[in-house]
Design a protein around this nucleic acid. Structure first.
Lengths: 210, 210
DNA sequence: TTGCTAATACCTCTTTAGTGGTATGAAAGG
DNA sequence: CCTTTCATACCACTAAAGAGGTATTAGCAA
């Protein structure tokens, strides 16, 4: 029986998943938390074979949870669960050592397979994810790889732009010169390889910068 | 026993909910569909007390499903289920006659209560939703109320802008004059009461237009 | 020390966005 | 029949963004 810990901020979802598994599936949800910080305590308290982790969580998201686990040296396989097939999330998850990645629109059979695979130390990626990864390496768009190289100041500028402020207003708000704001904006656009501000905002929102 | 039809495009979620209800809850999921167009056939085929409907669906979304049901004269109570506490969605749902509105981050107990209430012809609104409605009537911000008044063409233009196309590129893509695109953009900005395109994209993404 | 980067600031120039209008044909609805 | 809405198109003007540079300061790390 594979023992699963669910990390998800939606109680309904977690309870649903828990109730879904029948003994014949060989999977049992033994714990659930909405708080990433609670994971170590749970792992220390009982045997967990697989962590089923939602990526989209308000405070401590799935990626941050992975970092926490890595930092503390836990080796429990993690299966990432998400609504979105965002390449940034997929990439982050892979980098942090996630064992698998599955979409919330998967079927129960797929989830069972995913958990079984990851519990055995193998990797599992939903077929839709494979397509995404394929596309990514094809286009080699830095898309949001660049998000990681954005400085705090740059992110601050992006938020201002998203709020409808123009360069002058941003300079006034942040107490810096208009020229500086322009330079920042230019650097941002270059880093993220977008040509217009609207596109920048779309990219930023898709990747959680805003 | 309250008989429930689930309309949701995520099989995992639907299966989870279905498995979650125990006999003592007095609720039974008797049908599930991912296709809104299939609802009438299901309602005609068996007795359904409550429709548990996801709002965020790709093709025919929850609001559109409600319209379909209204059009065909079905009176089955509908409990809307959603991830987002978007005032636009709430408002639309209310207008279309939804009996209740609950968030996906509700607990099982809340869902049971919500289904029970709606099956008895009463209204149910999640407490977080109440807060939203309160805020809405307080601020009376047109924010995304305006989304409803956007024409299809206008939404198309917004998507182009979000993809980084400028006015000229949009005109070429849609085979219309640059002047026309400018007029559309101006109308959009006015309707949504934003002053810059980046702000427009932020608003559009927050409200599911993109 | 040397090298790298973030944050700051300035200049010039071209392109685009944004704002003020007006107008027409088609379709939808009262 | 009339009104409204949508999509279309045009003109003229101002404001802003975008693209090409260069440069100084502070801090951090190899």
């Amino acid at each position: 029986m594979v023992k699963v810990l669910i990390v998800d901020d939606h109680p309904l979802f977690a309870e649903g998943i828990k109730a879904m598994f029948k003994p014949e599936d060989g999977i049992e949800v033994v714990a659930h938390t909405i708080n990433g910080n609670a994971i170590p305590a749970i792992l220390d308290g009982e045997k967990i074979d697989v962590i089923l982790m939602d990526i989209d969580m308000p405070a401590l998201d799935g990626i941050a949870c992975m970092e926490l686990l890595n930092l503390k040296g836990y080796q429990t396989p993690v299966l990432m669960l998400t609504m979105h097939q965002s390449i940034k999330q997929i990439k982050s998850a892979l980098e942090k050592g996630a064992q698998g990645y599955i979409l919330k629109d998967a079927s129960k059979a797929e989830l069972v397979q995913a958990i079984t695979e990851t519990s055995n130390g193998r990797n599992y990626f939903h077929h839709k994810i494979n397509d995404q990864i394929f596309n990514y390496f094809r286009n080699k768009k830095p898309s949001m790889t660049g998000a990681q190289v954005l400085s705090e100041r740059e992110k601050e500028i992006i938020k201002c732009v998203a709020d409808g402020l123009n360069t002058k207003a941003i300079s006034a708000k942040l107490f810096i010169s208009e020229h500086t704001v322009k330079t920042h904006r230019r650097n941002i656009m270059h880093k993220l390889q977008v040509k217009t501000s609207p596109e920048l905002i779309k990219l930023a929102m898709e990747n959680g910068i805003i």
